[in-house]
Amino acid sequence: MLIIGECLSIISKKVREAILKRDKEPIQKIAIEQWKSGAHMIEANIGPAEDDGEKLMEWMVTTIQEAVPLPVSLDTTNPHAMEAGLKVHNNQWGKPLINSTSLDPDRFIMFELSAKYNAPIIALTVGKGGLPRDAEERVEIAVKLMEKAVEYGIPFEDIYLDPLVLQISTSQQQAKEALRAIKLFQELNDPPMKTILGLSNISNGCPKHIRPILNRYFLALLMYEGLSAAIVNPSEVIETIKTIDVIMGKTLYAHSYLEI
């Protein structure tokens, strides 16, 4: 499973301060920690970045890739910032990931960038009209997103369908719907469509000590359903991932499997 480190987010106070001061050190430290904990890709979440988004994304991507030999997942709603990030991304260690598009027409420009830069893209199964109620609605949106991808000439293997998981504390039923959606998404194509999820959203708003527990168990269920990628805090979930990979027969068991 593709592990994308979520910790470089503008939502985090530490990261926000470093960004404001353009202080590379804390950013690179967090990137390295995530890489050492098993991340295959580092997420750079700069939010809407309305002011100076292009410079900011450039700075984030180069700062991260100076420190770790990994590709970057670019998370912003600002298409100019997105394009600036794609331009400076060093593809030597893999392609960047565009986070994200959806069925909101304002976000179709991300499809355009995906096609232009030959970069995989996350497609959130939400439209403009609000959040989907169940797995079936998510699948309907997914099909429309796949049609859009065809229009833009993006191969299905470059699409990561994201069912969007909501907070368990306020939308308990949605966790199960997201799980079902992961399973159903894969049936939309042969070979199966790729799936992704921003894991920690499930435990948003929950007490701090419960959050890792919810995240880990939810991830185990998602992996059982065949999740292909996850945006996570690597150090929090790496044991879960290694263990489920062993249980599912993806890696060969050895007594020290957690140590490698």
């Binding site: 060969l252 068991y253 050895a254 007594h255 020290s256 140590e259 490698i260």
Partner: peptide, 14 residues
């Protein structure tokens, strides 16, 4: 045993 072979290699490389 394939699992033991892997384990021994992990231990030796550690």
């Amino acid at each position: 045993d394939v699992n033991l072979a892997k384990q021994l290699n992990i231990l030796i490389t550690q």
